[in-house]
Design a protein around this nucleic acid. Structure first.
Length: 460
DNA sequence: TCTAATGATTGCGG
DNA sequence: CCGCAATCATTAGA
């Protein structure tokens, strides 16, 4: 911003010079005097006067005042004035009318629009939020107030302040200078003919000069904002892992909606709120999760078990009775997660349920649910099938049978066989490597969810 | 320091 | 605009 200052001074000094040294500059006709003057004495007189006029500003103020007064009272003054008028008449034609109303400069308009959009030149205080909102929108929207975000806002405010103070300075300088020049011209109009139109034109020139300076200011402000913006966007790339709690919540949702892990907009919002992340971060997370899960289901088995168990725990605690009812009430219920849970829990006696669950919860290394080799099994099956799971996919089924573990391996090709463990097997993945378009709403209120679901996405 | 995990971005297709 | 797939870039754990 110091450069601006320098630029201004430069420009100012240029104009100032022109203003002070009347000859030549500012589009005023140079007083090349001796035309139509015959008498030698007169010629001499006029020459003197001209000389005095031209050197008037070289002298001190008092002197100049005195001289001016002298000139004004000079006997030849009216004659000189008329001569000047005549000259002006002849040369003044070259002064085109000040019609050149500045046509809206597209460049300037662009800058203005940009500054307005960035909230720099908008309404004073509230303006910042416009840019903040824009930035937030770029970052995914929502009321996310990350550190970077507030930092961004602070910097933007700083830029805005500088911009406004500079702009104000320029305007003030412009006004001051305009009045100064106008006074000068008015003063001089006593000794030489100056039409109001000329003054107007003068003012126009000055204003144009200043507006070009302003444009430079706007340009550099825009640059600053752009740099800030890009830095801000870059900073977003510097990721930070989500909190453990957040990943937990997301995983819970994912595995309990494994049949259709596509949270609705509302669900995303809810999850975002719960995890204190943005909606687009939720979307990112689910995008990454889906693809990574699909790519290597085996790798996620443990996690799936864990979260399945978790969901089961909460569900069980909430509606222990309902579980039994559900089985009784719906004998035709197909391979729903809940039924599976029922089976699981029923296999274990009521009293051992708790210990089983806690074991599942803590490490998954309990005898009855450890699935010690399920992952491996899965892996090997996967490798048998090739790296890609496309086309044919393998689901590992591990079910308790009495107090032993029964391992059932099912190969699912685009459909469910009902034998897999519904909690964590990819029963909804189709042969194309995508989730079947399960009826979206049902997934939200899927049987997995259960009446006692931890997820409130159904309630909202 | 190497590697796996992971959040973010990009390019493409619908 | 959304999701997928590939990829980038950083983080965290060994």
């Amino acid at each position: 911003m110091m450069e601006e200052q320098a630029r201004i001074m430069q420009a100012l000094s240029g104009v100032t010079l022109a203003g002070h040294s009347v000859q030549g500059g500012m589009g005023l006709p140079p007083p090349h005097g001796h035309e139509g003057t015959d008498g030698d004495g007169r010629k001499q007189d006029i020459g003197d006067i001209l000389h005095q006029i031209m050197t008037i500003t070289d002298q001190s103020l008092d002197e100049a005042q005195a001289k001016k007064h002298g000139l004004n009272c000079h006997r030849m003054k009216p004659a000189l004035f008329s001569v000047l008028c005549e000259i002006k008449e002849k040369t003044g034609l070259s002064i085109r009318g000040a019609q050149e109303q500045d046509p809206p400069d597209p460049q300037l308009m662009r800058l203005d629009n940009m500054l307005l959009a960035e909230g720099v030149s908008g309404p004073e205080k509230g303006g910042g939020s416009a840019a903040a909102a824009a930035a937030a929108a770029a970052a995914g929207g929502g009321a996310e107030n990350s550190i970077e975000h507030s930092d961004y806002r602070a910097k933007l405010t700083q830029i805005r302040q500088i911009y406004h103070t500079e702009l104000e300075k320029y305007e003030q300088a412009c006004n001051e200078f305009t009045t100064h020049v106008m006074n000068l011209l008015r003063e001089q109009s006593r000794t030489r003919p100056i039409s109001p139109k000329e003054i107007e034109r003068m003012v126009g020139i000055i204003h144009r000069k200043f507006s070009s300076i302003q444009m430079q200011l706007k340009q550099s402000t825009c640059e600053a904002v752009m740099i800030l913006r890009s830095r801000f966007l870059d900073a977003r790339r510097k990721r930070r892992n989500f909190s453990k709690q957040a990943t937990e919540i997301l995983n819970e949702y994912f595995y309990s909606h494994l049949s259709n892990p596509y949270p609705s907009e509302e669900a995303k919002e809810e999850l975002a709120k719960k995890c204190s992340i943005t909606v687009s971060q939720v979307s990112n997370w689910f995008g990454n999760k889906r693809i990574r899960y699909k790519k290597n289901i085996g790798k996620f088995q443990e996690e799936a078990n864990l979260y399945a168990a978790k969901t089961a725990v909460t569900a069980t605690h909430a509606v222990a009775a309902a579980i039994h009812n559900s089985q009784a009430n719906s004998p035709t219920t197909p391979n729903s997660g809940f039924q599976m849970k029922d089976e699981e829990f029923q296999l274990d006696s009521a009293e051992s349920k708790n210990s089983l669950l806690t074991n599942m919860f803590t490490a998954g290394s309990s005898a009855s649910f450890s699935l010690p080799n399920s992952g491996d099994m899965f892996m090997s099956m996967q490798s048998l099938n090739g790296a890609s799971y496309q086309g044919a996919q393998v689901g590992a089924n591990v079910q308790s049978q009495g107090d032993t573990i029964r391992h059932a391996i099912s190969q699912t090709v685009g459909y469910n066989d009902g034998l897999r463990h519904p909690m964590y097997s990819p029963h909804s993945l189709n042969g194309n490597g995508g989730w079947h378009g399960a009826p979206t709403p049902s997934s939200v209120t899927s049987p997995n969810e259960g009446p006692g679901s931890v997820h409130s996405d159904t309630s909202n």
